[in-house]
Structure formats: C-alpha cells, structure tokens
C-alpha cells in the first residue's frame, strides 16, 4: 500500500497530462478576457497583443457588481448551509428506513431531479406565500430546489456508515436528533463539504431565477449584471469573459480551501479512529 502510494511518478505523469488538457483550453478564456473587442472580432484565437486590463474594470462597473457582491454571498451561504442541514436531517430516516414508505420517499426525491420544472406554477406559489422579491423567499426556494440531489447523495452516503454506530448510540440513550447532529454529521463531513460546494456553485452561478423571483435590482446576486453583454445578435465576449473571471474567482478560492480542508479533516479523523 505504502509503496503503491510513494510510486508517484506514473500518477503524476497521468494527472499532469490531464491537467494540461484542462488548463490549455481554459487559458483561452483569460486570453479572450484581455483582448479589445476589435482584436477579438478580428482574431479570436491569437495570443493577446496588448492586454486590456481595463476590461475587468469595465465589467465590474457596467455590470454594477459592487451592488450585487454582498447579495451573492448571502444567497450562496444560506442556500448551501440550508440544503446541507435540511437534507442531512431528511436523509438519515430515509437511509435507515425509519419511516414507512422510505423507499417511496427516496424515489420521490430522486425523481425530482428530472421532473420538468413548472416555472409559472412556482411563481404563483411564491406570490401566494408572499415570498416574491424577498431574501428569505429566494433562499427557501433555492433550498427546495437543491434538496433532492443532496438527499440523494446523503442517503447513499449514510448507507455506507456502519449501522453498529446507530445501535451503540441507542444503548447510550443518545437522542435521535442529537445522534444525527453530533455523531453522524462529523462522519459525513466529506459528503457535506462536497454537496455544500456543489450547491454553492449552483446558487452563485444562477443566471435566470434571480430575474424571475427578485424584481428589485437591489436584491439580485452578482450574475445578473453579466447578462448585459449578451446581445440579441452579438456577444461582447472580452467583457463577458472578464466578468465571468471576476465572478469565478471567489468560488475558485473557496474550492481550493475547502477541498484541502476536507482531506485534512478526514486523515486526522481516521488516525484517531
């Protein structure tokens, strides 16, 4: 096992090749972001001659990103946290079949992943509950929409956690909820981090639903400003690319930190165990 790990030449070579296949095309986006629109139109692929750093400033100002940044953080944090908590609570009884019809519930959540979205009916529900155009309304709706995938993943994950733990906890007289929160939750850290991250990305990068459910501009997240570079017949790619890079930066940083955190957390845990 140890030797298998330390022989890192082959894995490194494979991964480096894959990383290059990923990275080289993606550098194109940086290349595009630095071009003037004229240069992009004339020659989209060539390497940029005079980097236009001002593109980033233009994207920032004309998409009014400073207004929206705060909103994006609020939505992303609460939706990701909400999805993880609500889905963990729901996944445990389903995975352990503690309720009647848990198989049905499981299929119900699963099928929600591909149920055709009923936008107009959803709109009426939002309106009827007075959730339109509010922070919490948007957050609750996004949690509802992100739940099914989270429940699906968590259920599978909990099934992989030995049942003996449950029984040990039961002997201890550990409360049902306390068990989920204090014993199960830490064990599920890798899954929770992953799902949290995926739903954070989904919320952060959501383009259209803010326009539908948030009528006041002041409530909208970051992405909504980006739309203005995508014209009817033409797209201003350099500015759009700059805008997308600005928006992606916090996510990328978060990803790098989070996934380091997942790994170290688990190794520490397994040494203890």
């Amino acid at each position: 096992m140890k030797r298998f790990l330390s022989k890192s030449l082959l894995p490194n070579a494979v991964l480096l090749a894959v990383a290059l296949i990923m990275l080289i095309p993606m550098l194109q986006i940086v290349n595009v972001a630095l071009k003037s629109n004229a240069e992009f139109l004339a020659n989209p692929i060539s390497i940029v001659k005079k980097p236009q750093w001002s593109n980033f400033i233009e994207a920032w100002t004309s998409a009014e990103m400073s207004i929206y940044f705060f909103n994006s953080f609020i939505y992303t944090f609460f939706v990701a946290a909400g999805v993880c908590i609500v889905a963990t609570l729901a996944a445990y009884p389903i995975a352990r079949k503690h309720v009647k019809g848990s198989n049905f519930l499981y299929m119900l959540f699963l099928s929600a992943l591909f149920l055709p979205a009923g936008l107009v009916p959803l709109l009426f529900i939002m309106k009827y509950l007075n959730l339109m155009n509010t922070y919490h309304g948007f957050i609750l709706m996004k949690i509802g929409g992100g739940l099914s995938v989270a429940v699906f993943i968590f259920t599978a994950f909990i099934k992989g956690i030995p049942k003996e733990l449950d029984e040990a906890a039961a002997i201890d007289g550990c409360g049902y909820l306390r068990y989920v929160l204090t014993i199960l939750l830490p064990l599920m850290k890798p899954a929770i981090m992953t799902v949290g991250m995926l739903s954070a990305i989904g919320t952060w990068n959501d383009f259209i639903s803010p326009y539908v459910f948030l009528i006041d501009k002041e409530l909208r997240p970051l992405t909504s400003g980006l739309y203005m570079f995508m014209g009817e017949y033409t797209v201003n790619w350099p500015i759009l690319a700059s805008g997308i890079l600005i928006i992606a930066a916090p996510l990328l940083i978060a990803f790098i930190f989070l996934q380091k955190f997942i790994v170290s957390g688990i190794t520490a845990g397994s040494i203890k165990g």
Binding site: A90, A117, G118, G144
Partner: peptide, 28 residues
C-alpha cells in the same frame, strides 16, 4: 420506527420540497 422523531426530521425537507418542486410540477 415507532418514534415521531424521524418524521419531524423529514418535515422541513418535505415542506420545502413539496412547495417549490412537487406542486409546481403538478402544475406543469
């Protein structure tokens, strides 16, 4: 199984899910 707790834990998910996913789909 005889406990009310599993259902309580399921509640928030079921409410949000029905409101924002299931009912709209029926409308669809």
């Amino acid at each position: 199984a005889s406990n009310i707790w599993p259902w309580l834990l399921l509640m928030p998910a079921l409410i949000l899910f029905s409101l924002f996913v299931l009912f709209p789909t029926i409308g669809n």
